[in-house]
Nucleic acid binder design. Structure first.
Lengths: 156, 156
DNA sequence: CCCAAAATCACCCTTTCGGGTGACTGGCTT
DNA sequence: AAGCCAGTCACCCGAAAGGGTGATTTTGGG
């Protein structure tokens, strides 16, 4: 009886995302069922349902989209001009995906707290990542890490 | 009779996006009406509709999300191949020689103390210069000041 | 299934940054 | 001479950054 929405697994490495998506869907269906039993006789039904679903899934889709670009951005080539990040050195230095994301935001002038907010993690986590970065980039300060990263073509 | 979806205008500077969104919605409703007249009697109706709408709007939402993030990316300014400092902006911002020297050393990853040593002045002096720089560059942190300076072609 | 790496978070402590204020000097202008 | 400004320095205080340690959860690969 339940509608099942199948997502392309290739685009979503996170089981968490799938799980959340599923839960959200279930919650929605449940809510709709509730509404259905109370107002089904009325005439606003179909359009009302559709509107609800539309709004909800648009928001959900936007969220998923944002999550995906967030992942992608760190891996893919930066759009600015002809810059291409040196993935060799990235691996050689042992810099992880998450650490690189922190590095990027750092170079844009974000504070640790701002980075934490943008990556949806705690301040302590960002501190840990940045500390690891400083070791891997042989830097003492964030400004030095940024400079070093640019020398190594890790940043534009 | 039509459900109206209201989007937060602050997040969408593009009228084109809104228009496309509206068109898509209209098209969907139209399509549903078509389907409705042909299969309404059958029992798969409601769940089927909801599934359709869900998939469609998830995709649409993801698309909108992607469009929005793409706008952000294109703002970044790529510095030219050979670098030449933009003295116009330097004067326009009212940045003095000494302040610029501090800015340069700052961008190389020096701490305030290191800058003080290299310029043969006291730590407090460097602090004063950097504070003035932050005001003139509209930055809150040194990393932001550096980024800003690069955008303005004050630094390579 | 298990393990290692990655990611997450917490706590404590020190150093560095940054804001605000005030003051003094030397050079240049009016 | 008076005024202005860049440059210099000091002090205080709060916020941010950074170091070190330990712990838990996710995730990916064998």
């Amino acid at each position: 009886m339940f509608t099942f929405v199948c997502l392309p697994h290739a685009f979503i490495p996170l089981k968490k995302t799938i799980l959340l998506y599923g839960l959200a869907l279930a919650a929605l269906i449940f809510l709709l069922k509730l509404v259905e039993y109370r107002f089904f006789a009325r005439d606003l039904s179909l359009e009302f349902y559709l509107g609800l679903v539309a709004v909800f899934f648009t928001a959900l889709g936007a969220w998923v989209g944002l999550q995906l670009t967030r992942k992608k951005k760190s891996i893919s080539v930066a759009p600015a001009g002809d810059f291409r990040i040196n993935e060799e050195i990235l691996k050689q230095k042992g810099i992880s995906k998450r650490e690189y994301e922190v590095l990027e935001l750092m170079a844009l002038g974000n504070s640790n707290q701002e980075i934490a907010d943008k990556l949806f993690v705690s301040l302590n986590t960002v501190k840990t990542h940045s500390s690891n970065l400083f070791v891997k980039l042989e830097a003492k300060r964030r400004t030095q890490a940024i400079q070093r990263a640019k020398e190594l073509s890790l940043l534009p």
